[in-house]
Design a protein around this nucleic acid. Structure first.
Lengths: 351, 351
DNA sequence: CTGAAAGCGCTTACAG
DNA sequence: CTGAAAGCGCTTACAG
């Protein structure tokens, strides 16, 4: 005999299938004694429910929504593709994922996006956005309705989100710091630090981790005041150039946010590609190319495919009320050199 | 109306469910014209088969076997645990995984193990072993019986295996070389290279990649002739000590195989923990500890959990005749510093 | 070559 | 509070 089924439980407990189903699913309206009889049968036979058969019978579908910023960056483009790809793969598990791109900074647009998500009746929502009081309220409202919520890429630690799918940005900054320190053989020097905006929590965390490590272990390197690039590589190019003009002895650049193109443009124009140690974040077509040519020394990456799949698995697990495999859902701080650059996939233009 | 089902196809094509099933599953005994009618209906309605409903109906189970060396190393212990954990997670998909530990070098034991696997009727086999003529024969025999075969950790490139689940060890060696080079600020020096045995292909590949990079980019570092530790940290300790005694100016150690404990023991006894750059492979309780204390500078890791899950997904995909998500099945060469060391999971003693 | 009916393991109205 | 029957999307003998 194979694994026990509801039929076996019913026979063993001397009840009907309907009653077995009731106690298995914790529905009310069963006598205490009957509940116990069924539970004992379950225990004795070692019954474990077949979730996919159950989902088939109840025609269960999981409606999830992904809310992403509409900023046009290569990283976000890659993330969007990764979400689509993961959604396709999980459609076999009856997941239905809808992605919404929204101007996260615009309260009206954001409100609208949330209304649509609520109207669609999503059971799970994944959100990538900076933490704001408004975002916290939105999340609280979703939670009040029993919706599963995960923050992706950027955490919402003060909110009621169920889970965070992303890296520890303080540790990522520390990692960047160590690599900058150890790769800077030239001795003393100044380091330019470029971020999108210091209003973003992940940027602040990265900068903090980076500074900690430099102070602790590489006192010969001094990190210059943060310059902000606002997700725009023309601005990044301008501020990077200004920084190089106004400081002597710059030996490295930590590009903690988007806009790497601005950095590499300036560096290459000035013929500094060889000398400068450049540490960047996120594998994109451009950062891959720069890694290959040796302009960028190392990229700290968070795997978009993994993040998309993990968000979906975690949301589903919440809906099913089951545990996840913790180690599988831990998003790694990947260190990518030219030598261990994946041949394709992650951050690549096309498949 | 939701997704089309076999009923819809049957109605649309004007045939019975049984006939739909026949053409869907490519079974013989259907008139050409009928086949075409059904296929047209499938195309018109955009039908896509529900694999888990099909598996439910046919009571499909996937019997897989994992064949691992019985060598008692921390890495293998971790891998074994990862396989068990993945097997548990995939039991919901009807996977039944049995792991066999065998003295891979012993032809008799190996024969026996294969006989047992064949007797059990496994439909998929994952093998971690050095490539030998005998192993090639075994794999050929499995393939002749239609069994799906994947090589894990160490490839069997000359065999008929369907897939390799593991890292590119040449690239891993190059990665180790770059890190050794860039972390060696002290200038010229000699590097000790420790492997299990140069009879193992992955060790040869790692050594080769390491040497390439040193020659190309770090000529001031010279890698000493390989020393073999035979998976035994006492031997490793002895040969490492000998190496240090017989060479002046050793500044780094590349531990490409098991036996890191031997290396760190010698290095610590001699008070060289700070000065020596140590690059090792595989996250284990010991390598984690050494990373934390700073004795080991960097660990090149292949994620055991990922490898176990990937092997199972790939085997299942082969049985189902479907494609895998290439990017998900690509095993990364992970670079692990103290700063990006995962808090728990991978290579940890307990959960 | 083709189809009606029963069944996989579970759930859902409906009746009592 | 409990059960008989039908059904989820698919497959499998069995008959014809």
């Amino acid at each position: 005999m194979g694994k026990p089924t509801v039929h076996d439980i019913a026979r063993e407990a001397g009840v009907s299938l309907a009653t077995v189903d009731r106690v298995l699913n914790g529905r009310a309206g069963v006598r205490e004694a009957t509940v116990r009889r069924v539970q004992e049968a379950v225990g004795r036979l070692g019954y474990v429910r077949d979730l996919s058969a159950a989902n088939l019978a109840r025609q269960r579908r999981y409606r999830f929504a992904f809310l992403l910023p509409d900023t046009p960056s290569q990283f976000l483009h890659g993330l969007h593709r990764a979400v689509d790809e993961a959604a396709l793969a999980f459609s076999a598990d009856r997941l239905e994922v809808e992605t919404t791109h929204v101007a996260i900074g615009d309260p009206v647009a954001l409100q609208q996006a949330f209304r649509r998500i609520e109207a669609r009746g999503a059971e799970g929502v994944a959100i990538m956005a900076n933490e704001t009081p408004m975002m916290r309220d939105m999340i609280a409202r979703l939670k009040a309705k029993g919706v599963a919520v995960v923050a992706i890429i950027t955490d919402q630690p003060q909110s009621e989100r169920d889970h965070f799918v992303g890296i520890d940005n303080l540790a990522a900054g520390r990692t960047a710091g160590v690599l900058m320190g150890r790769f800077s053989a030239a001795g003393p020097g100044k380091i330019i630090v470029v971020v999108n905006t210091m209003q973003a929590r992940d940027m602040v965390d990265r900068r903090m981790g980076f500074d900690e490590v430099l102070a602790e272990r590489f006192p010969q390197l001094v990190a210059l005041p943060t310059v902000e690039g606002w997700d725009n590589h023309e601005i990044v190019a301008r501020v990077t150039a200004q920084c190089l003009d106004s400081h002597q002895g710059v030996t490295g650049i930590y590009c903690a946010g988007a806009g790497l193109r601005g950095v590499t443009e300036v560096v290459r124009n000035r013929g500094l590609g060889e000398r400068m140690v450049i540490v960047s974040h996120d594998l994109t077509p451009h950062s891959r190319a720069m890694l290959r040519t040796g302009v960028v020394d190392v990229v700290i990456n968070q795997n978009a495919g993994h993040i998309a799949r993990s968000a979906m698995r975690v949301l589903k697990a919440h809906c099913d009320g089951v545990e996840v495999i913790a180690s599988q859902e831990r998003i790694r701080i990947e260190i990518v050199l030219k030598e261990n650059l994946p041949q394709d996939g992650e951050g690549e233009e096309k498949r």
